[in-house]
Design a protein around this nucleic acid. Sequence first.
DNA 1: ATGGACAATGTTTTT
DNA 2: CATTGTCCAT
Length: 726
Amino acid sequence: MKPFLAHMNPQQQQAILANGGPILVVAGPGSGKTRVLTSRIAYLIAELGVHPYHIMAVTFTNKAAREMESRLINMLGKLPPGLTLGTFHATCARLLRRESDNLPFKSDFVIYDQEDQIELLKLAIGDLNLDPKRYKPTWAQHAISNAKNALILPDNYPVETYRDEALRRIYQRYQELLLINNALDFDDLILWTVFLLENNPEIRQRYASRFEHILVDEFQDTNVAQYLLLRYLASHHRNLFAVGDADQAIYRWRGADYRNVLRFQEDFPDAQIIPLEENYRSTQAILDVAMAVISHSPGRIPKNLFTQKGQGHKVTFFEAYNNHREVEYIADTILSLKRELGLQWGDFAVMYRTNAQSRLLEEAFLRAAIPYKLVGAQRFYGRREVKDMIAYLRLVRNPDDELSLTRVIATPPRGIGEKTFLALRTLALQKDLSPGAYLLEIGKNPNALPAEAFPERGRASLLTFSAMLHQWVSMGSSFPPLAIMDRILEDIGYRSYIDDGSEEGQDRWENVMELRRLAAEFPEPGLDAFLEQVALVSDQDTLEGGANAVTLLTLHAAKGLEFPVVFISGLNDGLLPHSRSFDDPEAMWEECRLLYVGITRAKERLFLTCSQNRSAYGYEEPIPPSRFLDYIPYHLLDEVQPRRISSRHSSKGYNLLEEVARKRESPNPPAERRYQAGMRVQHPIWGEGMVLNSVLQDGDEIVDVYFAGLGLKRLLASMAHLEIKV
DNA sequence: ATGGACAATGTTTTT
DNA sequence: CATTGTCCAT
């Protein structure tokens, strides 16, 4: 047997060996999709003799890309030279730099992250004399990002209200500012690539014929722009191999559109669909709970997940009096499980909906002396001191970057305030220069600064700064990033600026040193590679496994990971589902999928916890249990403390516990159908529908209901809270 | 130009 | 409650 087929089940083999053409691999959680993806690449290269140059594999995270890299090295002995393997954004950035002759920006553009975007938007809003309180930069950022993900430019931004028009102008001005700064934001990387391919048939043809095989990971997370990008790239050979799972689509709010899975099937009617249904991760008990939760999600393709790991331990449910008791329970349980089962700290993970929930857990863990690591809460690259240093390096690389310039000038304060800077800016614009370019000019030749234009103090500050800037820039292309960084650190006395002796100050300096270590990994002269890396790498990628500590992380951050023991905390209405999604059914189902993702991270043991009261913002308030708990049949759970009957359910005249109690008394309730074809029924979420069919099974009734606009749903009568309409 | 006092606000965040 | 941003006085 070929090495890349060893230990593969028939479905996996089918996917790996599939002939060309469009292929959609529907990969359930824990079904070995990364193995399939990498094995297929190995197969294409080693068996079919496809040159790696003709293969492109795209992922969403650097971590996923690196994971594939190392597996390929394992299988093939080395990374195939010429292979295109990377994130959407990194791949597009590379392509855009190569093709910048056909684009309105220079090949050495900088990449703005979300924080930079907000800063730039503040400028744009200011330029238009709009009230930043009415037009919040964060709002605008969201709207513009959505527009870009849907390939909408300012010119065709839909305007229905005055507000839309204002937003459209902000968007327009924002794009202008980006070009002036020779910068692209994250969304631009995809957007411009799509436009490049769309508008230049000959470039499109070049890439489309180059990439004989295109493989995509986490296909359900693609947005419209990314989907079109793939379609263009695959337009010649049509060998698009997409792996995804709509049940794990949790990034809708970021523009991801799992309906791309449907579009794919429309655009490629001959697409082969290969399901991967064997789960290698979780016990049956965990899988049962996962299936119970996700089966309520409307419009999904039913999957038949199974595992050979055996039944395993029942999923534990604990309802605490309040969230303090809840975290104590989690800490206590971790301690006793570790002792009883001989587990490592690293075997445990605690998940929650919002980062704010981690604080109480941290406190409880500190008290219990449990070592923990927090994923992603305060981003390394988002740290002020790190962003400061990156601004310096970016400025050296691209002096036109005014955003970085203003940041650099203000940190540390060097006597150049708003007034002085504005005067400088005006002078620069008169000379048709960016302020940064003008400062460089002055650095070379101090006489370029008109003596009469500034008061003595401001003038002196400007001269000092421009001289430093000039020095740094002249180092730019001939020294490695580390040398430039050290020089800057020394010139500006950065350590004494941020390290005030406090613990926080020391932390900050530590972070600067960490960045310095990263810079040291780029020994070549030129900042380009380092800055690109820094711009397109996130902290999720820096999450090192192995560290012997309990992992605390949001449900979002948990995707793609697995742990022997998982706690999902805060299963309360308002947290999960989050209150912000109450009025939007789509968002609501995304919350449900989020829970599903969390559940399916667990290998051996799963604990679901909630609390009856929650203190937040200073006050303790009652908080209802998550409505998703109703989706889990009682017999699948092991309750540590009997759950109190919540008024929410009984008020509806229907109660899960009563139902369960009734079932317990008579394991086989009267075999009688309540629903019949033709009946109209009311569902709490989907509204009114018509019963098409109903059958009895295991003492429960399985009802097929057609809902207008949603289609046919298969429901469990005991779970669905259906009301018969007369 | 800079720091201190007050008000506003409160999801998730692959790149 | 705790963090973040804005305004104002020095």
